[in-house]
Each structure stands twice: as C-alpha cells, then as structure tokens.
Design a protein around this nucleic acid. Structure first.
Lengths: 143, 143
DNA sequence: ATACCTGCAAATGTTTTGCGACTAA
DNA sequence: TTAGTCGCAAAACATTTGCAGGTAT
C-alpha cells in the first residue's frame, strides 16, 4: 500500500507541481497531527520548521494536499475551516458538542444505505454527503 | 395554531424589541417566498417596500427572525448563507445537486432514529443535526 | 531558461459593528 | 423620555490573489 508521501509525490509529478520545502513541511505537520487542524494552526506549526512561511503558502499547500486526496475540509459551522486526514481513513460522520467543541467520529452503515436509497428514490446519484450531529457530550450534560 | 406573525409579535414583546417597518417588511418578504433566500436576495426584495433599507438592517432582521424560531440558516457549502422557513415545517434534510444547484427536501424517520441511537451510544444528546447529500440530480445525470 | 513557488500586501466576499440621527412606545 | 433602530460606512474575518523576486528541474 502506498504511503501518503508516495501519493503526494505521484500527484505532484502528474500535475507538474514542483517540490518545495514549505509545502512538504505543511504536509509533514498535517500528517503528524491526528487532530482537525485549522489553517491558522497549520500556519503556526509550520512556522517552527519554516519560520519565514506565510499564511498564503499554507493555504495554497492545503489546497494541493486536498486535491491530492490526502486531506479534506471539515466545516463545523463555527466559521473556521478545519482539515482532516482522508487517505486511509474510511468515511465517517461527526458528533459535535456545541458546548465544548469536542467531536467524535462515527459511522453507521445502515444510515449510509438508507441515504443511498433515499437519493435513488428521488433520482439523485450521491457523490458525497455530510452528516453532522450537534449536541452535548457526556461531560457537558453533567454540568 | 399561532401564525408566524403572532409568534413574531410575541417574541418581540417578550424580548423588548420594538416593531419597525423595515423588519416587518423583511419578515413579510421572507414568509411570502417559498424559496431558500440569501441575505442579498432578501435585501433586494425588501428594497421594493423599503427603498432606503440597508444590507445591515436585513442582516439584523434575519437574526431576530431566526431567534424567534421562524427561520433557520442553511449552508450548502457554496459560501452563501440561505434561510429557510422553520415554523410549521418539520425537520428535513437536503439533496443538493452539485451541478445545477437545485435541491430537494427529504425526510427519513428511520435515519433520524438511527442517528439518535448512534449519538446515545456515545453519550451525546442531540440538539440538532444536519444531513446533506451532494450529488447529481436526474436532469444533470442525463447531460 | 522556464515555469513554478514564495512572502508580502492588498483584495475578496460576506456578514457584522460603530455611530450619530431617528423613532416607537 | 429613552432605549431600540436605522442607514451608512467602516470593520471584521478567514481565505485568496497579484506581484516581483526567488528557485527547482
């Protein structure tokens, strides 16, 4: 199985995109952090390796990384875009706590099947979907 | 059963918010349009009744209208916020065509139940949820 | 050499906020 | 009278784009 880096290299080659230290540092930071990072967080973490890096470069790097299929944007409706790992992670939905902001990734095949069925009955072909459950996590309920 | 206007009036009274022609015109436009309107659309439509109205006033009015439980923000990930009717409309999900932008409102009780179950198993209490299925509608598939 | 890439600053695009004037209650 | 509202312009906010100089291939 190909690693993220191999996929990235192949994507760059195929699209005539050059290698660059900054972009690779952004990817490295992204891959090493098992958390949904914002561009701002990626920016500050990348600064440790590339102190001169600009916000725009991080933004551009994440676009390439998303296009390469390694990352995906997530929007929890708080106005900030986060990125989650895509490669090697099967599709999942999110349970988001509206109080503390923590979230859990969940998956339910039965729901996925029903979605497919529902779309088909309306003549739609689903390309992707987004299911977010907003509520209170166990801890926040007990406060 | 209370009408939207009665609910609105009650909400204003309860929260010490005054009546205003502009706000009522925005609400009137919103209620009379069975479509997911953007602030910009609401702004232009409201201008017909209140030519001097400002964008900010429409934005502020929609906030009050949402708070009163009559409208709800919808985000189809195209960067523009739309508003849909909430009062007297039961919860539903959206099937959105990524090609032409049209959408259908759908509802599936079985999915709702499974969501509840899934959340409960993780200790979450759901307050609201959002399910969006992005794909191609019948017409766009045949092109 | 030639595109691609970079950091910076400026631009973008949508929505919100500050302000002095206005007005409903 | 007085606190909520208004329209306008400016601010806010996250992200993107233009540009002139730098760099991988």
């Amino acid at each position: 199985m190909k690693s993220e880096w191999e996929i990235f290299a192949a994507y760059l080659r195929k699209n005539g995109i050059r290698r660059s230290e900054q972009r690779e540092n952004v990817l490295d930071v992204f891959l090493k952090t098992e958390k949904h990072l914002t561009i701002e967080e990626l920016y500050f973490l990348s600064k440790k390796k590339s102190p001169e890096i600009g916000y725009a470069t991080v933004s551009r790097a994440m676009k390439v990384i998303c296009d390469a299929g390694l990352a995906e944007k997530v929007d929890f409706e708080d106005g900030i875009t986060r990125f989650e790992h895509k490669f090697g992670h099967e599709h999942h939905d999110h349970l988001v706590c509206v109080n503390c902001g923590t979230f859990i990734e969940v998956r339910n095949d039965e729901i996925e099947k029903l979605q497919e069925k529902m779309a088909k009955s309306k003549g739609f072909t689903i390309i992707r979907h987004k299911l977010q459950l907003f509520g209170l996590c166990r801890e926040c309920q007990n406060k």
